[in-house]
Amino acid sequence: MLEVILWFIGIIIIVPVIYLAENIILSAIPGQNRSYPIQPIYRLIKHFSKTDLYNRPLTRWFPVGACVFALVTLFFVSAGENIMLIISGLVMMELFILVGACSTKEPYGIMAAQRGISRLAVWSFALMIAAASLYKAAGTLKLSLAIQYSGESILLSRLPLVTAGLFTAAMIKGNLGYFDFGINANTMSFLDTALYTPYGGRSLGFVQLTQWIETGIWLKLISFFLPWQPLISFLVSAVFYLAAMLLNAVVPKMTWKKVMMNSWIWAGGLPAINYIWLYML
């Protein structure tokens, strides 16, 4: 139980640390906006100190519900529970935010929710294929039992594309997977952070907190597939995520249509290919 509690706290702490590292590195790059090292924490406190302005009183409770589901899912992932439980928790959390966005009854809120649903379809597909592949490779869905296979590099050697697909899905969830390396890149509108659009004030604080916890859940989930000790695997996945965040700050973004096409190819396609390959082995 102590190990579970330590993981629970560690996962909560690692995401602000990643944000802080990103801020420190970015503020040293010329041409980037200046920021304080702990600006993400300042921003969160600021959001919680503001009021909500919604025409529907229930709207403000949906982000709170999402945050509760994120905490419960974080406990499951810390305890190495069944991957299906973790998927259910993540989906419920996302649904709470989507329903909250819809309930604002604003055109931007509904548009953001539509985009959130298309994104949900991609990453939940990736997670389901990952669960099926895990069962095929390790014979169990319980992550604490599957971890013995990852220690002998069996999981990574049999599920390399699933691991890559899950990392891509994590980037999509953190609004990072929209890089456009072409010279004709378009800058996306503020709607690239789709689900944040209709939320403001305290609700935005809860949404942001939920996203922090969720990022930690994804990093821990990916670390189960990596071949090193659990702590080292977790830190490696965190470093990769930090690299993606830094890339995100300097590389142009794609338009929404391109984003969804690429999401299906990388986050949906890679695990699917891996699953078919497992059957052919």
Binding site: N33, R34, S35, Y36, K46, T197, G200, G201, L204
Partner: peptide
Amino acid sequence: ALLLDSGKGITLTGNPRHAD
């Protein structure tokens, strides 16, 4: 001006819900 050191911590937003 936001590129100056005195503009530390100020960011631009396009969303009234996020604006101070």
